[in-house]
Amino acid sequence: MVAVAALMTLAVRLQRERDDRYPPPETTEETLYLTSGGALQRLSLGYRSLAADVYWIRAIQHFGGTRQHIYSPGQPAATPQAEGSEPYRLLYPLLDLTTTLDPYFKAAYRFGSIFLAEPYPGGPGRPDLAIALLEKGLAVEPDNWEYMQDIGFVHYWWDHDYQAAGAWFAKAADAPDAPWWMRSMAAVTLASGGNRQSSRTMWQSIAQSATVEYQRNHAQRALVQLDALDQIDVLRPIVERFVRETGMPARDWQTLARAGAIRGTPVDPTGVPYRIQPDGSIDVDQASPLYPLPKEPQRTGARP
């Protein structure tokens, strides 16, 4: 027993020595060996649901790992092109395989669409794929109001297509088991889509009806982003007045504080200072958990 313990300790030390002298690569490139859902269905034999779980965990690891890599210190969150390769490239294939293996995997459709629609650097910024994934779910469960709500939501929040969003919310309201507030959400979207208050109402409904913590956290983050947009609306005229009165560009908050325009450095609801952009506009810092803020919904962006 003592010999086994001693040899095991020796093995661990040797491994550590080897790692120190010849460090293994920090990251290995992720690869998807099997890309055909049909082949995977066959290979998983009687364990399709379990295989779907494995692919779901891989999708989360890929999404989280890529985000962590992009947001890590020394990694400027710039454009997808600046990353050298296409980040999040495996996200959709992984979610597609997950839902092929387990067509009733609700979380894979719903969270997957959230992941896919999130703009870079928080996600791949592919609302089209988010909608495709949800439509795949609807093909399996045509009466699922949650998928319809999510499609409407992608149109609303990322495409700013309030007509399409309202139409999907109305369709969801007609589905069996849809909550009572779905109809009013449809009406509000069609009447005043793009209005920040209607966005807030929508997110509050989602936060209250969320059945999973991630979904609720996502909605709460969006509500805080709306708070940040409100705060930016207050700061913007202050910066503009400073520029107008002094004739100097507003480069940082210290300059404004010295001139008495503000009392200190304004911070967003997460405590990270806001940033004044070179063109004088104000945004949350890239280090903020709220970055990137959604594009301010505008009716002008609506598609027919």
């Binding site: 779901w56 913590e213 991630y214």
Partner: peptide, 12 residues
Amino acid sequence: LTAGQDYKIVID
């Protein structure tokens, strides 16, 4: 690891 899907995966 599973974004709230631990219950489903436990059953699987």
